[in-house]
Amino acid sequence: MAAGGDHGSPDSYRSPLASRYASPEMCFVFSDRYKFRTWRQLWLWLAEAEQTLGLPITDEQIQEMKSNLENIDFKMAAEEEKRLRHDVMAHVHTFGHCCPKAAGIIHLGATSCYVGDNTDLIILRNALDLLLPKLARVISRLADFAKERASLPTLGFTHFQPAQLTTVGKRCCLWIQDLCMDLQNLKRVRDDLRFRGVKGTTGTQASFLQLFEGDDHKVEQLDKMVTEKAGFKRAFIITGQTYTRKVDIEVLSVLASLGASVHKICTDIRLLANLKEMEEPFEKQQIGSSAMPYKRNPMRSERCCSLARHLMTLVMDPLQTASVQWFERTLDDSANRRICLAEAFLTADTILNTLQNISEGLVVYPKVIERRIRQELPFMATENIIMAMVKAGGSRQDCHEKIRVLSQQAASVVKQEGGDNDLIERIQVDAYFSPIHSQLDHLLDPSSFTGRASQQVQRFLEEEVYPLLKPYESVMKVKAELCL
């Protein structure tokens, strides 16, 4: 049975990233139509530049190519590739079939990587351009969430054990800070992308030097003109047959890092959902379990974690691919890159769409948070109580021993009897502590235990987050809708 299948058929496997999760716009960027249309555009740009620099290419040939950029006979191309065992030459023939007058000058002087690699770089750039505003929107939604809850005390956790208090907004800023680093890295790697350009079979530009009869300047002009037509500021000066596969490492490393950030955020949300302090959106008709109707599973956060793990592992592909590119190139890269580049971007696209949807509907339960604080705060307040007693004339050592005994009794009630923490009640009825009984409410005010959390939130948002989001103001209103 021949390899390949009808990918629109229910009898043929289709990647869930495309069929179930990723956005239509990201799927289109990695589609065959987008790819092969870009090949034709690159052939047109090459012909236009070659004509401008004096090669015998007519206006009629150029116009014929322009008129057929979208006229792609995919069936013919597939048949040609089956016959020739070469995808680029299959599309040269297919393009030439609908451009008979231009057929002889299509791909003039070029090698397969002229269309293959340059198209990949265009796709990487455009895919990054799709991700950047999506990530900015996630940051914006979380920034709104953090600002609104900047002063809401909550129990902090280290080692997932109760620690000092923080605020809900401050905790959210930990998430935002990681995503801001990801946004900066995505922008950097996007701006650092260079075009492969017009380089020939081993990167020496020998074929173009021959076409222009040894004119170095025209060869350099050709490279520059096509690079500018493709919208790049610069091209690699040095290439082998391909652009260095280190570029793929750079791009997928940034995406993998984004995956790590999203995994951490969504894990926190899942843990908070278990504590009943916070939940992701839950639709009115949504079913959490087929057997347990009360369940409210954090399905979206779980999906993000599941896909983020996949995204983090994909960076190993370009690392290994770059390491086995012998001399000017081997074909070890080809099949692998067809999979890992598309999957990385479709996965990143999915987790950003999902995280935006989550961040637009996060639900906080202040009463649950308050109750958990009441359970733990008495123990945390013991040092403040000791200091207040010393100020009232008591002995630190005597007070410490009193607190120690009462704390152990209260802990026994919590752990052995399943009761509430009654340390404060014990202190309130103990005559030894009568000098500070009137101060206990103040000493137990949760806001006095959150330090500068709310001020940190305000400063972080104003100095770091809002300036970073400013270039994306025009796209901030787009909502994230999930079908599944």
Rank of each mutant, 00 (worst) to 15 (best):
L108H: 07
T347L: 14
S301I: 13
Q177L: 14
Q184R: 12
Y472G: 14
N421D: 13
T347R: 01
L17Q: 10
I265E: 09
H93M: 07
N421W: 01
T242P: 11
I123L: 11
F282T: 06
D182W: 05
V363R: 05
D178E: 11
D430M: 14
L55Y: 00
A22M: 12
Q325K: 01
R190K: 09
L183T: 11
M380R: 02
K187M: 07
T239G: 06
S289E: 03
K284Q: 09
A103P: 05
S140M: 14
C113F: 02
C399M: 10
F345H: 08
D248P: 05
F449N: 05
F345E: 01
F74Y: 08
A344V: 00
Q161S: 05
E280F: 03
R125M: 11
H159S: 01
E383S: 04
E481T: 15
L130C: 10
A90T: 05
Q458K: 13
A77Q: 05
F28S: 06
Q61T: 07
L222R: 02
D349F: 02
S257C: 11
S12V: 14
I424P: 14
K295E: 15
N357L: 07
T204A: 10
V414S: 09
A206C: 02
R426N: 05
K295A: 03
M181C: 12
I249E: 02
D191C: 14
A3K: 15
V251E: 07
L271K: 03
T94N: 09
C99S: 10
L482T: 14
Y466L: 14
Q428R: 15
N185P: 13
L69I: 13
E250C: 10
G288N: 03
A146S: 02
A273Y: 01
S112A: 01
A410N: 06
D59K: 08
E401L: 10
G240H: 06
E250M: 06
L482P: 14
K233F: 11
W175V: 05
I424R: 12
T244I: 02
Q286P: 00
Q408T: 12
Q286E: 01
P153I: 15
P133L: 10
Q177A: 14
Y365T: 13
L130V: 10
A322F: 15
H400A: 06
D11A: 07
E213L: 09
Q161F: 04
G231S: 06
Y21Q: 10
K479G: 15
M65A: 13
R404A: 12
T94K: 10
C180N: 07
I373P: 03
P293E: 00
T321C: 07
G104A: 11
D117E: 06
V405Y: 07
C399Y: 05
I287W: 01
S334C: 09
S140P: 04
L155M: 04
C98G: 09
L174I: 12
T321R: 02
T201L: 04
K66L: 05
C113M: 06
P153C: 11
E343K: 14
F345K: 01
T347K: 00
F74I: 14
Q408C: 04
S261Q: 02
T119Q: 14
D59E: 03
E70R: 09
H442F: 15
K199C: 10
D144T: 11
N71M: 05
L461F: 15
P467D: 13
A411H: 04
H86N: 00
A103N: 13
Q210M: 13
N126V: 08
V29E: 00
A381F: 04
P378V: 11
V251A: 11
C340M: 05
H107E: 07
Q286S: 02
I57S: 01
G418M: 14
G288Y: 00
L271I: 10
N384H: 09
R245F: 00
P24R: 13
E148V: 11
A90N: 15
L319C: 00
E50Q: 02
D129S: 10
D216Q: 09
I351Y: 00
A163I: 02
D11K: 13
I287C: 13
M380W: 00
K187G: 14
H97E: 02
K367F: 01
K284T: 10
T354H: 15
K101C: 07
M389W: 03
C99D: 05
G156N: 03
V363S: 04
R188V: 08
Q325E: 05
V219H: 07
A102E: 01
I386F: 02
G259L: 06
H97Q: 10
L108K: 03
G116N: 08
Y472V: 14
F379N: 04
L132I: 07
K477W: 12
S323D: 01
E302R: 02
Q63G: 10
C305A: 05
L131F: 04
Q286A: 03
H263W: 10
T52I: 03
T94E: 14
C99G: 06
R270M: 00
K170W: 06
